[in-house]
Design a protein around this nucleic acid. Structure first.
Lengths: 188, 188
DNA sequence: GTCTATATCGAGATAGAC
DNA sequence: GTCTATCTCGATATAGAC
């Protein structure tokens, strides 16, 4: 693997584990096995490296979501698949976790991948719901955009509850609580 | 106001704005107007000060939630009041935001107020839902604990979406999406 | 491209005077 | 109780040799 590649992957891991403010160039060098001079040769500094890493993580998150949402089956089934996918719950969301970091939110360049990722995800889920609605899968009217926002929020909030409890259980409960509400709208 | 009090309030503000790792003793001194020596006289160090501040914020969060959830009216109405309460959405949750901080989650003492707060909140909302269920307010069966977890998660996740978008709108959408799902379970 | 040396600054305290 | 001085360490680079 190339040096730049190793740097990006190490930064992705550290951003996930420690967030942005708490991830140091020194730690990136140690994790990647790349030296000081080499790191600054490939990237201008910590912000540039973080930007590359965040963009990469955002791509991966979109690909994973699309694998669930783009499949065959009913709208409700695809949303359930997305909600119930296996996750490292206690690690939190690699993208959503950064929204808490003041230095990320304050920097428009660093925040943009977050905005784009969640914007895309909400839109993608809304499109799935809209498709289900057109097919007559739902028994009651349902606002696709608002419902999609609630679905994404339950996942992101589930991470917060799980990390607070040091247990994946609240995540699971929140997801199942939402699925039960959605199922009540779904024709059998 | 006492010196200790000023220190706690300044720390509460900074933890809310910047999180734990990114809040320095120096910043606390400047925000509170309390000197170095004085700060270390009243508190052993940053962890002790943060613990006092987090406990205080947790108390305040519980009091605010109880004001909505403990009122008169139907279960659904009290939950709606809780969900629609005016919030500084872009600032995020003073408690939930800390769940992303690795140093907070790694320290059992610092994490405990988070666990207790969300444990209490989920239980309190579950009790409201259970009361509504006994009164026959719901038209379909509904698991109080799971539904409560979903409700709390939507709020916490709403903050994440809003901060990512630099706009309160996704928070509002997620909350309204959830309320619409809940309303479908509620007798008119 | 990669290495080592060096620089500046703030984090997070401790010590002891007042 | 509060103040100022001092200390150590890591964050985040820059410079220049190899």
């Amino acid at each position: 693997m190339s040096t730049a590649e190793r740097l990006i992957e190490a930064t992705q891991e550290l951003l996930w584990e420690r967030g942005y403010v708490s991830t140091s160039p020194r730690a990136i060098q140690q994790r990647s096995g790349v030296g000081q001079g080499s790191m600054y040769h490939h990237f201008e500094g910590k912000p540039a490296l973080a930007l590359a890493a965040v963009r990469r993580s955002a791509e991966q998150l979109r690909a994973a979501a699309e694998a669930d949402l783009g499949g065959e089956g009913s709208a409700a089934g695809r949303v359930r698949a997305y909600l119930r996918r296996e996750r490292s719950v206690l690690r939190g969301c690699r993208i959503g976790g950064l929204a808490q970091d003041p230095d990320v939110v304050a920097d428009p360049e660093l925040r943009r991948p977050l905005e784009e990722t969640f914007g895309w995800l909400r839109g993608r889920i809304a499109a799935v719901l809209e498709e289900g609605r057109r097919r007559g899968e739902f028994t009651a009217p349902l606002d696709p955009a608002a419902t999609a926002a609630a679905i994404v929020a339950v996942v992101q909030g589930g991470y917060v509850l799980a990390r607070s409890a040091a247990s994946p259980e609240p995540f699971r409960q929140a997801v199942e609580g939402l699925i039960a509400l959605l199922d009540a709208h779904t024709a059998p």
